[in-house]
Design a protein around this nucleic acid. Structure first.
Lengths: 337, 337
DNA sequence: TTGTAGGCGTTATCAT
DNA sequence: ATGATAACGCCTACAA
């Protein structure tokens, strides 16, 4: 019944055996006679004994837990990341600590503290200082996600160059001349890379890019804010490239609300290829990135990876051309959708 | 530098004091002479000593961690929940375990296991079996969120009756006669309550409700699916009440895409009052519920609450009338927004 | 004020 | 196959 105070030792006494035997039984160790095993299992069953995690962890010097650290952002991106990570953590029978960084200042110390409670830590690049990363790496396994540089720590990263390919598509194939970029390059390493790819594509194409990005966050509501900034102003661009699908959707929603047509009056693109991108009309042109795989790969590295070898993994992304960029609708019934 | 192998005992030897003294210093206990304190602190500093969490926790029989358990859903609702909980957990210097239930079957055992690693557990109603809840409650503090009944466990709940008030508003003030309900009453206790409130309002008003809800999930993409089901069919309703803002937004997006006008051709309402609700046009009529407060209240109860007294807290919600239900736009400049 | 010793609940290494 | 016994790293009476 109540298992509050039953300890291994107590079970041992009840069964008239040594603590060691109970430990063996409790863990399914083979070296115990069927007779004793039976006796011990009965007591365990009746008493509702469950081995104490702290005691076990202390003896095994292993926490049985991994940690995930990221900025306190919302949206499908993080949901996906979280679920992927958790799924993989469960697979190996571990538990998952979550640390969402709000106040950037306190995060460093909290992360270092967290490092003392886990076997490995996954940290989204840009969330903590390099010094803190160093600290963490000395204590536990560390994987940095979405880092911009292949440093001394193991990293798992998305291929952001496809964003440049998308920019070229708009510039070259569609011949757009005035593009806008929605996203804050200082906000996250990924956005930095995308802004640079955006700039690079312009350079190649010999088109002069906007002087500044439209600096907003990554939520859908930020897309609306961006829309207001872009569409209330004077001359509106031919196309706007958003740093992710969320903001693109917000932007489309607002544009539609104004009676603008997408892509005729304004082309819009995103990044992620989340569910909504395919369901909205016009279909959202975007770049597909395997967020879940990012998470599972990271978790697996943390659980299985050689502790001392640093690896660098880049996950592939790919262009997904739909209608919002100005491409013709793909085959399929013309009506419904 | 490296602090991998420095233990309290080691520090004690280096400083030429007893382990007890180091322990006292390490925890800021007052009963130690300035001289020794200084000496010990120096060694701690130099060696980068950090007390081992497992050792400390085992000795204090306290994990310094709380757990949050919910179904693996995405969307702003859970982001908010998560952040609120985490914020409060940090406040008390604890850490946060997260358990997202994917396969409903395994969840029970995982939750019970998790109960052995925390001082308290917050569980969203409907995620685990009652038997598991019972088990958990015997081991640690437990708060059930959004439960439909005030049972033996402490609960924190939202007032879902306001959904009925909203239904009355549509039925009585606007005189709509054909309403639709979007959401799966079997999916979560909250949706169950809202569907019942929906039915209740119809009964009161003497209007015959739809035989069945439009059973979809709670994501934005589900709103699109619902829209297809509702709008592709024969006679379309006057108004559709969605179980949350996400689906309402998806529905609006699709309706707009078809060239329908909201609310003229179709009124739409949501639940939550998330950021987007106020930013979209037409503004989304909805019910505001304090999700963050739900989370912080729960966490605080877990951290501070009397272990043995079960409380039942209901958080207030309130009607937010905007334009999507057919109400006139509130005061303010008529143009931009 | 400081140190000693026992305990927190397991696991693991030895003997037996 | 089983059982002492010593870790694991820390806290905390109790004693000095």
């Amino acid at each position: 019944m109540g298992n509050s105070r039953v300890s291994l030792r107590w079970v041992a006494q009840q069964a008239g055996v040594s603590p060691a035997t109970v430990s063996r039984v409790s863990r399914g160790s083979a070296t115990v006679s069927p007779e004793l095993r039976e006796r011990v299992l009965r007591i365990i069953e009746e008493s509702g004994y469950r081995p104490n995690h702290l005691g076990r962890a202390l003896a095994e010097t292993r926490h049985g837990a991994l940690g995930l650290v990221f900025p306190g952002l919302s949206g499908p991106y993080f949901s996906e990341l979280l679920q992927g990570f958790e799924e993989e953590v469960q697979e190996s029978g571990d538990s998952m600590f979550l640390l969402a960084s709000h106040s950037h200042s306190e995060t460093d110390t909290r992360v270092i503290d967290l490092a003392g409670r886990v076997d490995g830590l996954a940290i989204l690049a840009g969330t903590v200082s390099d010094a803190a990363l160093e600290q963490v790496a000395r204590q536990v396994r560390l994987v940095v996600m979405c880092a911009r540089e292949r440093g001394a720590h193991t990293t798992v990263t998305m291929d952001n160059t496809t964003f440049g390919a998308l920019a070229r598509h708009l510039l070259v194939e569609h011949g757009y001349r005035r593009l806008a970029f929605v996203g804050n390059p200082d906000g996250s390493p990924d956005v930095t890379s995308r802004w640079e790819a955006f700039l690079g594509a312009h350079r190649e194409a010999g088109v002069v890019p906007p002087a500044e990005p439209v600096r907003v966050g990554l939520q859908q509501s930020d897309g609306i804010i961006a829309a207001q900034q872009i569409l209330d102003g004077g001359q509106r661009p031919d196309a706007v490239m958003c740093a992710n699908d969320e903001t693109a959707l917000g932007l489309v929603l607002n544009a539609l609300g104004r009676g603008l047509r997408v892509p005729d009056d304004l082309a819009v693109t995103g990044f992620d290829d989340m569910d909504m991108a395919a369901m909205v009309r016009p279909g959202l042109t975007t770049v597909r990135q395997p967020i879940r795989e990012l998470a599972t790969t990271t978790a697996r590295l943390l659980a299985d990876g050689e502790p001392r070898v640093t690896r660098h993994i880049t996950l592939p992304t790919r262009l997904v051309l739909r209608e919002s960029c100005g491409c013709r609708p793909a085959a399929a019934g013309p009506s419904d959708n």
